[in-house]
Amino acid sequence: MTATTLISDAPQTESRPARHPRGARGPRIAAGLLRGILVVAFLFGALFPLAWLVISGFKARNEVTRTPFQFFPEVWKWENYAQILSDPAFLRTVLVTLAGALIFAALSVAINSMAAYVFARLDFAFKRLVWVVVIGTMFLPGMAILLTSFIVVTRLHMLDTLAVLILPGAASAAQIFFLRQFYLSVPRALEESAFIDGAGRFRIFVSIFVPMSKPVFVVVAMTSFLAFWNSYVWPVMTISSPDLFQIQQYLASFRFERGNSELGLLMAGSALAAAPVIILCLVLQRYIVEGIKISGIK
């Protein structure tokens, strides 16, 4: 909120002084112009590639790679979108990935919030040791355990199941850390009376902490959902039956198998696969910025 009160037009007498004070007229116009150019540049840089994806999805098969270059399609072809949406393999992939991502997000919230609450509030044996071990897992580069994780899930006969996609990442030190930061900031007075009434720790967690956790739960659910929806390498390694194909896996194999011949179709599919993610960002935007503040990274 303070971001937006620092506008250059704010009068100097205001308690919060402007970051850009009024200067001479000329420089002020130049500064305004520069700011305008920057705004356009950032919006363009961030959004153009996506717009380009959507536009290309409307292009005919050979139009995408045709010279001379054409910005807009000659004819806006809905066919690509219609065709990919009527492909049962694509639809199944979307549904399977969506189901997996939702289960993963819910599980991630439940498991990590309980752990975070315990670390934030409870006093127990070996607390320090357990905390160090848990938080230590945050610093493992994925590649260091990717290969041996694969060996582990192979041994557990988990290959080619939905479980292999959901379980390995559900407990996350980063999420536990983030949620714990939030629980540490909750005043102790809030649980004191429940404590005196003899409510157990789990009751207190469910009846007092869970209801106030909406903003952090949204962030955890969203980041978990995104991580699942966007994951590519793990599904490629562990899923081979087409019934369980994940969306990124589908898109990449589409790209590798059909090369440049069906780019329009591939773009339409990619645009559709990106859509839920973009919608999620738009709907939950205010939580994202809050989340960065809570995480304490700044």
Binding site: L43, A46, P49, I278
Partner: peptide
């Protein structure tokens, strides 16, 4: 601006590569 610049972060590497 904040939402716009955040959106690419949520896009998968696969889709970014395709783009």
């Amino acid at each position: 601006l904040k939402v716009s610049v955040f959106i690419p972060t949520a896009i998968s590497t696969v889709i970014a590569s395709i783009i």
